[in-house]
Simulated assay, not measured.
Amino acid sequence: MNEQLQQTLQALQGGLTGIDAGTAASNVTSWHKTLDGVPGAETLVSHLAQLKDCLESGDLPGAAALLPGLGSETEKLASAAPAADQDGLHQLATALKG
Protein backbone atom coordinates (compact mmCIF):
# COMPACT_ATOMS: atom_id res chain seq x y z
CA MET A 1 0.00 0.00 0.00
CA ASN A 2 1.37 3.41 -0.89
CA GLU A 3 2.47 5.79 1.86
CA GLN A 4 -0.17 8.43 1.16
CA LEU A 5 -2.96 5.89 1.54
CA GLN A 6 -1.39 4.48 4.73
CA GLN A 7 -1.17 7.97 6.24
CA THR A 8 -4.79 8.72 5.40
CA LEU A 9 -6.01 5.47 6.94
CA GLN A 10 -3.93 6.09 10.07
CA ALA A 11 -5.40 9.58 10.40
CA LEU A 12 -8.90 8.10 10.21
CA GLN A 13 -8.30 5.50 12.92
CA GLY A 14 -9.73 7.87 15.53
CA GLY A 15 -12.79 8.49 13.39
CA LEU A 16 -13.61 11.30 11.03
CA THR A 17 -14.37 13.73 13.84
CA GLY A 18 -10.96 13.16 15.42
CA ILE A 19 -9.09 14.97 12.64
CA ASP A 20 -8.64 18.73 12.88
CA ALA A 21 -9.72 20.78 9.87
CA GLY A 22 -6.19 21.96 9.03
CA THR A 23 -4.80 18.43 8.90
CA ALA A 24 -7.81 17.28 6.88
CA ALA A 25 -7.41 20.15 4.40
CA SER A 26 -3.73 19.30 3.93
CA ASN A 27 -4.59 15.65 3.31
CA VAL A 28 -7.35 16.59 0.86
CA THR A 29 -4.97 18.89 -1.02
CA SER A 30 -2.45 16.08 -1.30
CA TRP A 31 -5.07 13.68 -2.71
CA HIS A 32 -6.35 16.34 -5.10
CA LYS A 33 -2.84 16.74 -6.54
CA THR A 34 -2.36 12.96 -6.73
CA LEU A 35 -5.63 12.30 -8.54
CA ASP A 36 -5.83 15.36 -10.80
CA GLY A 37 -5.61 14.12 -14.37
CA VAL A 38 -6.19 10.45 -13.53
CA PRO A 39 -8.71 9.02 -16.01
CA GLY A 40 -12.00 8.25 -14.30
CA ALA A 41 -11.21 10.34 -11.21
CA GLU A 42 -12.79 13.59 -12.40
CA THR A 43 -15.81 13.38 -10.07
CA LEU A 44 -13.63 12.46 -7.11
CA VAL A 45 -11.27 15.38 -7.85
CA SER A 46 -14.26 17.74 -8.02
CA HIS A 47 -15.58 16.44 -4.67
CA LEU A 48 -12.12 16.87 -3.13
CA ALA A 49 -12.01 20.50 -4.28
CA GLN A 50 -15.42 21.10 -2.68
CA LEU A 51 -14.29 19.37 0.52
CA LYS A 52 -11.14 21.51 0.69
CA ASP A 53 -13.22 24.67 0.27
CA CYS A 54 -15.56 23.60 3.08
CA LEU A 55 -12.68 22.76 5.41
CA GLU A 56 -10.84 26.00 4.72
CA SER A 57 -13.96 28.09 5.26
CA GLY A 58 -14.88 26.26 8.47
CA ASP A 59 -18.04 24.73 7.01
CA LEU A 60 -17.70 21.41 8.83
CA PRO A 61 -21.34 20.35 8.28
CA GLY A 62 -20.84 20.97 4.55
CA ALA A 63 -17.63 18.95 4.64
CA ALA A 64 -19.35 16.11 6.46
CA ALA A 65 -22.13 16.07 3.86
CA LEU A 66 -19.57 15.46 1.10
CA LEU A 67 -17.94 12.43 2.72
CA PRO A 68 -20.43 9.71 1.66
CA GLY A 69 -20.11 10.79 -1.98
CA LEU A 70 -16.32 10.75 -1.66
CA GLY A 71 -16.58 7.24 -0.26
CA SER A 72 -18.71 6.09 -3.17
CA GLU A 73 -16.34 7.62 -5.72
CA THR A 74 -13.33 6.07 -3.95
CA GLU A 75 -15.06 2.68 -4.06
CA LYS A 76 -15.62 3.05 -7.82
CA LEU A 77 -11.94 3.75 -8.46
CA ALA A 78 -10.56 1.08 -6.13
CA SER A 79 -10.85 -1.73 -8.67
CA ALA A 80 -8.76 0.24 -11.19
CA ALA A 81 -6.01 0.99 -8.65
CA PRO A 82 -2.82 -1.05 -8.28
CA ALA A 83 -3.54 -4.35 -6.53
CA ALA A 84 -1.44 -3.34 -3.52
CA ASP A 85 -3.73 -0.33 -2.90
CA GLN A 86 -7.14 -1.87 -3.54
CA ASP A 87 -7.78 -3.15 -0.01
CA GLY A 88 -6.73 0.17 1.53
CA LEU A 89 -8.97 2.09 -0.86
CA HIS A 90 -11.91 -0.13 0.08
CA GLN A 91 -11.15 0.60 3.75
CA LEU A 92 -10.99 4.32 3.02
CA ALA A 93 -14.28 4.21 1.10
CA THR A 94 -15.97 2.46 4.01
CA ALA A 95 -14.63 5.00 6.51
CA LEU A 96 -15.79 7.92 4.38
CA LYS A 97 -19.27 6.48 3.92
CA GLY A 98 -19.36 6.36 7.70
Rank of each mutant, 00 (worst) to 15 (best):
T34K: 08
G62D: 09
G58L: 06
G69L: 06
N27Q: 12
L35N: 03
K76Q: 13
G40P: 09
S30N: 01
L51T: 01
T34C: 00
Q13E: 14
L35M: 11
L48K: 01
A95G: 09
S72A: 15
P82R: 07
Q10M: 06
C54G: 02
L44K: 01
G18Y: 12
Q86H: 14
A80W: 05
L77P: 01
L60S: 01
L12M: 11
L55S: 09
K33L: 06
L55T: 09
L66E: 00
L77A: 04
A11F: 05
N2E: 15
N2M: 12
L96D: 03
E75G: 10
Q10C: 02
A95E: 14
G15S: 07
L48T: 10
L60T: 02
G22P: 04
V38G: 02
G40Y: 13
A78C: 13
D85H: 10
D20G: 08
T74E: 11
S79C: 06
K33G: 00
Q7W: 14
M1D: 11
W31M: 08
H47R: 01
Q4H: 10
M1G: 07
L16Y: 10
V28E: 06
G18P: 03
L66D: 00
G88V: 07
S26G: 13
A78Q: 12
T94P: 08
D87G: 12
G58C: 11
N2L: 04
A63F: 10
A81G: 12
G98H: 07
L89W: 11
E75W: 14
K33T: 10
T74R: 01
H32R: 05
L96H: 01
N27Y: 05
G88W: 08
S30E: 03
Q50K: 15
G15Q: 10
S26L: 05
L66Y: 02
G69F: 06
Q6S: 15
L16F: 09
I19K: 08
G69P: 00
A25H: 07
K76G: 01
A11V: 03
A80T: 07
L55E: 11
L77W: 01
L60G: 00
L51Q: 02
A83P: 15
A80G: 05
S30R: 00
L67N: 02
P82G: 04
A63L: 11
L92W: 09
T8K: 05
L60K: 03
D53M: 04
S72P: 04
C54D: 14
